[in-house]
Design a protein around this nucleic acid. Structure first.
Length: 611
RNA sequence: GGGGAUGUAGCUCAAUUGGUUAGAGUGCCGGCCUGUCACGCCGGAGGUUGCGGGUUCAAGUCCCGUCAUCCUCGCCA
């Protein structure tokens, strides 16, 4: 056996306590701080586990030059501090290490920012030196929490007899859904793999194989524009089970959530998790992922509006649209300026304006007041659940989705602004009964609301005979057997009962405008599999980055990911994406277009490119 | 693809109506200091005001373009 090298630590920097007094120990760690008092020199040594104060006597320090972030080996004796010198803010604060020798294991240049907990520095710099950013305790704690959370989830699935199976990363492009990341084939000139947007088809095939219960911590890739809660590559807890229906999937997940939250953070998830049909969510909250931590529900005012003298309101209803409102309790004190800011919120989502009313029995105030009929204030107040001192807000539009969406987003906005959302409370909800198809005006055809493998609520699916080029076709009324899991206004994940009959699957492809030829070419293997005894099956997937971020009270997923990308999908640390050597392109049979080449040259000739 | 915000010292920011040599805090370096832990005191170094162009006697400041980052609408089965 090899002998242990003399420099290696006997303890971590978070380990020593008063009970270790007198021990001879070796610590390894980074220089976190130095305090030179002339005759005595204090040194804070840091690692993942904590910080320990090292005391260097003049004789030991000598002319040793220490810089921040140098990596050291310190040998010495643990000493209990005198009462007045104890640092109560540190776990190791009752002791200090009296150094007998200090050895530099690795020197450090001056870092571009300080390695401190409450760093106040731009994202750009932090991402460029992510290895230094990740040296900070809060970021390390995030990653540790993520690891514990995901492993607790793994244990929970294993306890239910699920089998973790890995599926391919190099796979086939899918015609529907997000833009694919493509990988050119060297062996097959002109052909491409795609990175999976999710392991969807593979997990269904595993059900056909009889694996019965599958799960995976799966990396997924979607080449779409990013957001604070969206990265081009992200992680899902993906699962699928056979011989089940909706309620079995819900039950399985509820147990997983109970186990995971309990194990990893000691939180008791309140169960059963309530269910709400999509239609109800849209009507009451204006959104398919309602935040149930506060009330302030939307109110339908269509009948009131139809009879109103206010043209904007009555006109919207006559045009087949909606008028809805919501009441901000004690919102009457909001200034005109604040209300204008709220109007900007609804305009973002397509609303033309935001009407408001400060309710009172005498008719109230605000632009809507003159349209409240004599003596009609009480009726309107009752409709809105409003009392004097409240603020009522209204949106009217010929497009129902604009009314619901804009007021729904306004409700979320107000919830945050008024401090109605308690961050340590986790309110879950299953949203069910989504429509199977949605009409896309731009493309002029139907798209799957969830995905094309989702079972229709009615297996016969109308039996055909619909005019599929008609946006008002009753195909739009078909319900699906898909469901979302929602928490605190975030969509955590979605799933569905799947189609396990080849004929139904073909019919759905037809509605989506995927002809027989294309079906064979793109999904032949799936249709084939469905014709060899496919069990009824259903599944679900949860976005882990979002869920982990939420459990830490963060609304940006960047800091629960070790090496995240920027909003333009670049990695500032390793400078990806980047150009490759000409021979590499030749190998994979790729010609870069003249336009792309010109853009590259322009970028490289500007001084900005190298900075 | 659209909208908004930001870009000044290593870092966080300031700089009046366009006007002298672009400042402060912090970090860093040097000196002093034997109980600090946000140590203290003294001194010092440190700037292509993102980049390019324009207006002007004069631009960190005004105009045009461009790049980067963040937020967001569209997009994300």
């Amino acid at each position: 056996m090899t002998e242990r090298a003399g420099w290696q630590r006997t303890h971590t920097c978070g380990a020593l306590r008063a009970s270790d007094e007198g021990s001879q120990v070796v610590l390894n760690g980074w220089v976190a701080a130095r305090r030179d008092h002339g005759g005595i020199y204090f040194l804070d040594l840091r690692d993942r586990y904590g910080v320990t104060q090292v005391v260097l006597a003049e004789e030991v320090a000598g002319d040793l030059k220490l810089a921040p972030e140098d990596v050291l080996c310190v040998r010495g004796t643990v000493r209990k501090r005198e009462e007045r010198n104890i640092n109560p803010n540190r776990e190791t604060g009752e002791v200090e290490l009296v150094a007998e020798s200090v050895e530099m294991l690795s020197g450090s240049k001056l870092p571009p920012f300080e390695i401190i907990d409450d760093l106040d520095t731009g994202v750009e710099l932090r991402l460029k030196h992510r290895f230094l950013d990740l040296r900070r305790a809060p970021l390390q704690q995030n990653l540790v929490h993520r690891s514990r959370f995901i492993n607790a989830m793994r244990r929970a699935f294993e306890a239910q007899d699920f089998v973790e199976v890995e599926t391919p990363i190099l796979t086939k492009a899918t015609p529907e859904g997000a833009r694919d990341y493509l990988v050119p084939s060297r062996v097959h000139p002109g052909e491409f793999y795609a990175l999976p947007q999710s392991p969807q088809i593979f997990k269904q095939l595993l059900m056909v194989s009889g694996l019965d219960r599958y799960f995976q911590v799966a990396r997924c890739f979607r080449d779409e524009d990013l957001r604070a809660d969206r990265q081009p590559e992200f992680t899902q807890l993906d699962m699928e089970m056979s011989f089940v229906e909706e309620e079995d999937v819900f039950a399985s997940w509820e147990q997983v959530l109970i186990d995971t939250f309990k194990d990893s953070m000691g939180y008791d998830v309140p169960t059963p998790i309530p269910r709400m049909p999509y239609k109800e969510a849209m009507e009451r909250f204006g959104i398919d992922k309602p935040d149930l931590r506060f009330e302030m529900e939307l109110v339908a005012l269509d009948d009131w509006a139809r009879a109103s003298d206010f043209q904007v309101f009555s006109g919207a209803v006559e045009a087949g649209g909606r008028v809805m409102g919501l009441t901000v309790k004690e919102g009457g004190s909001l200034s005109r300026k604040e209300i204008t800011a709220l109007e900007d919120v609804v305009k973002t989502y397509g609303a033309k304006g935001l009407a408001f009313w400060k309710p009172a029995l005498d008719g109230g105030a605000g632009p809507l007041a003159r349209f409240v009929p004599e003596g009609g204030a009480q009726e309107l107040m009752e409709l809105l659940g409003a009392t004097e001192g409240d603020l009522c807000l209204f949106v009217a539009d010929p497009r129902e989705r604009v009314v619901q969406r804009s007021l729904g987003e306004l409700r979320v906005h107000l919830g945050k602004q008024l401090g109605l959302t308690e961050p340590s409370e986790f309110r879950f909800l299953w949203v069910t009964h989504f429509p199977l198809f949605e009409w896309d005006d731009e493309a002029g055809r139907w798209f799957s609301t969830h995905h094309p493998f989702t079972a229709p609520a009615d297996w016969e699916l109308g039996g055909g005979g619909f005019d599929l080029s008609d946006p008002d076709s009753p195909i739009g009324d078909q319900m699906s057997r898909s469901y979302d899991l929602v928490m605190n206004g975030w969509e955590l994940g979605s799933g569905s009962v799947r189609i396990h009959r080849a004929d139904v699957q073909q019919r759905v492809f037809e509605v989506l405008g995927i002809g027989e030829e294309e079906q064979r070419q793109k999904f032949g293997f799936l249709l084939d599999a469905l014709s060899y005894g496919a069990p009824p099956h259903a599944g679900f997937a949860v976005g882990l980055d979002r869920l982990v971020a939420l459990t830490l009270g963060m609304d940006n997923i960047r800091d629960v990911i070790a090496f995240p990308k920027t909003a333009s999908a670049t990695d500032l640390m390793c400078d990806a994406p980047s150009t490759v050597e000409a021979y590499q392109l030749e190998d994979v049979h790729i010609d870069v277009s003249a336009r792309a080449k010109a853009a590259l040259e322009e970028a490289q000739s500007s001084p900005e490119a190298s900075s």
